[in-house]
């Protein structure tokens, strides 16, 4: 797992009176059970993390709480940051949104601040100094968790975009010298061109001799796209590869006939399985005749 670790500054929390800090940390550890429960209650009331079970929420909350208190104690957010990234990676895939994560961290800040307020209300001076120590640290922690989440989310999005790009031009090598181009979805002129270029590059890179173009997943076809298909077959042949078209539905076959598309130089086979068998047969022996019509 690669993290963009350098993009979040490794913030040292502000220096605070060490006696007060020890007291604060001690207090939060003593009240751990009660404050965790209060936090979970507030999370549930605010209807955050709806995709997670109460048990899951409690487990994560406990870990975040402990990391949070450790960060206050040591002044270093690194461990918390690592945990936040790890947590983010797990919950992003389940659809947790940015506002939920920010909401949860801010709730924890509120829960703890309120508890401190109640605990020290008899001594306003100490309360003030405790809050002075707590607030900037708490804000820093909230920012760290929020930024970690957003960065993780961006990384996941980038990954998905790359996957989509790859899926939209899926030229697959089945075995040596044989590639399949399964076309799925709407085939417009621009996409047909892209697919052709991708296919020809793959023929060159993989030294393919047979390409199977499977159009089972194509719903309809017009004259322009049909001509693209014919051109793709011809261009493949110029590069020394024979093309086999499979998955031609009866509707599309009818359309092609009605449109008067010249299919004489296209080798078509009913289904992908049959196409692959034909491809294997061709790979056994073959001579390619340019303009062999």
């Amino acid at each position: 797992m690669e993290h963009a670790a350098e993009s979040v500054p490794h913030v040292r929390l502000p220096e605070v009176d060490s006696r007060l800090l020890r007291e604060l940390v001690e207090y939060l550890r003593q009240r751990r059970t009660e404050l965790r429960q209060e936090w979970v209650r507030r999370i549930t009331d605010a209807q955050l993390l709806g995709v997670m079970t109460p048990e899951e929420i409690f487990l994560e909350v406990t870990a975040v709480y402990d990391n949070y208190v450790d960060a206050l104690e040591t002044g270093s957010v690194e461990t918390l940051q690592d945990y936040a990234r790890d947590l983010s990676e797990r919950i992003i895939r389940r659809g947790v949104e940015t506002h939920e994560v920010l909401g949860i961290v801010l709730l924890l800040r509120d829960v703890l601040a309120r508890s401190l307020f109640v605990h020290y209300q008899h001594d306003p001076d100490v309360l003030n100094r405790i809050l002075d120590a707590y607030e900037p640290a708490a804000n820093r922690i909230a920012v760290t968790v929020g930024v970690s989440f957003v960065e993780e989310r961006e990384r996941v999005i980038r990954e998905q975009q790359a996957a989509i790009r790859e899926l939209s031009t899926p030229v697959l090598q089945v075995r040596e010298r044989l590639v399949i181009l399964p076309i799925i979805g709407v085939l417009d002129s621009q996409r047909a061109r892209q697919l052709t270029e991708q296919l020809l590059m793959t023929i060159q890179a993989n030294r393919a001799k047979v390409v199977v173009i499977d159009i089972t997943g194509v719903a309809s076809i017009d004259m322009t796209v049909a001509n693209h298909l014919v051109q793709t077959v011809k261009a493949s042949r110029l590069m020394g590869a024979s093309a086999i078209i499979t998955g031609l539905s009866s509707e599309i076959a009818q359309t092609l006939v009605d449109l008067g598309v010249d299919l004489s130089m296209m080798k078509t086979v009913g289904d992908l399985q049959g196409g692959l068998e034909e491809a294997e047969r061709l790979l056994g022996y073959k001579v390619i005749q340019a303009g062999d019509e």
Partner: peptide, 27 residues
Amino acid sequence: IQPDVAVAMVQFELSLDPLLTALDLEE
């Protein structure tokens, strides 16, 4: 024949008959 040249030839509707075509020298 390079991929882009193959596309241009096809779009131009150039014929190469009776030439054979193959990927590279070895082929």
